[in-house]
């Protein structure tokens, strides 16, 4: 038995990978298939799933409704379409903002002296690993009507003798955007840094030697060579922003409902798991499509692993 195993390298490999496959198939692939099956089903009166086959959940998300105020047979109900669109635009805006903030910092670290690079990176990692919920909480403290920012502004106004009405910042779309940017910024810094660090210094020298000024060097050499990092970072930011519900829940209140909140409510408040499953698959499809077209256009680097 042992001898046969020793001689068969292929079954050794299979043996080593099998526990991983059990988990990946059992807790990833099978759940996804189950989600798909359930999304075609209906909710029973006691909140359980009735297995049927119908596209009603998908039709509902797309907003095609037969319960029309004007009495028509079919009309468009934009409720869920709006949620989808809001999630998509928020993810897009957050990603663009995150790139704008992450790039200079990543550039700074990549061109720091090698001895200091680790310290600067370390300073990015600490906020990254500080708990997600705690970080949202920090922004609640900052943005509240009686929070830190308003207190600070009020104190400043008092100094110059102005009347100050506290700003309403929490529970606004802006608060959700800031929260998202804050949460996912480190995910962009790390891959961009990785790709910038790889650029050999002689390339900058060559560009300068050939007469390019720093700005041209940046746009013709640095930026194109760091694109793999930007691509990897975008995937690492865009996907979670699309699916997160805590940030919008705590910083957006009832104002900002995203697809993540929609899904969560279908399951946790035991409304309709079949509808939640359909929404979840729509979310997955949206992220996969965006990722697919994005990576096909820009390529997919190893930077994603570095983060």
């Amino acid at each position: 038995m042992l001898k046969r195993l020793r001689e068969n390298k292929s079954s050794q490999g299979t043996l080593l990978i099998s526990p991983t496959l059990v988990f990946m198939v059992g807790l990833l692939i099978i759940p996804l298939i189950l989600t798909l099956i359930i999304s075609f089903g209906k909710r029973s009166a006691d909140g359980n799933v009735i297995y049927t086959f119908g596209l009603h959940n998908y039709i509902r998300i797309l907003g095609i409704s037969s319960d029309c105020p004007g009495g028509q047979a079919i009309c468009f109900d934009p409720l869920y379409a709006n949620i989808l669109w809001r999630s998509l635009t928020l993810a897009f805006n957050s990603t663009v903002l995150v790139i704008a903030l992450a790039y200079p910092l990543a550039y700074f670290i990549a061109r720091a002296h090698p001895m200091k690079r680790n310290t600067f990176l370390f300073m990015v990692l600490v906020p990254l690993w500080t708990n997600f919920v705690i970080r949202v909480y920090a922004w609640m403290m900052l943005l509240r009507t009686q929070g830190v920012i308003n207190s600070l502004l009020g104190w400043l106004a008092g100094l110059v003798g102005l009347h100050f009405t506290p700003l309403e910042m929490l529970y606004t779309p802006g608060a959700v955007l800031v929260g998202m940017v804050y949460e996912f910024l480190p995910f962009m810094i790390l891959p961009i840094f990785t790709s910038l660090e790889k650029i050999d210094n002689s390339l900058y020298e060559a560009a300068a030697d050939l007469g390019a000024n720093p700005i041209r060097t940046f746009f013709r050499v640095t930026l194109p060579l760091s694109m793999p990092g930007v691509v990897a970072g975008t995937i690492l930011v865009f996907i979670p922003v699309m699916g997160t519900f805590i940030v919008s829940d705590l910083l957006g209140g009832k104002q900002v409902i995203l697809i993540g909140n929609l899904i969560q409510r279908q399951f946790l408040d035991a409304r309709d798991p079949t509808f939640g499953s359909a929404a979840s698959l729509i979310l997955m499809a949206m992220t996969l499509i965006v990722t697919f077209f994005y990576t096909r256009k820009f390529g997919f680097g190893e930077e994603i692993v570095a983060a």
Binding site: T20, T244, F267
Partner: peptide, 19 residues
């Protein structure tokens, strides 16, 4: 299969396991 958790939103995996 090891790359799947990286490219799908965590909530999708979460509700899949819940289901």
């Amino acid at each position: 299969s090891l790359y799947i958790p990286i490219v799908i939103p965590e909530i999708v995996m979460g509700i899949g396991i819940l289901v």
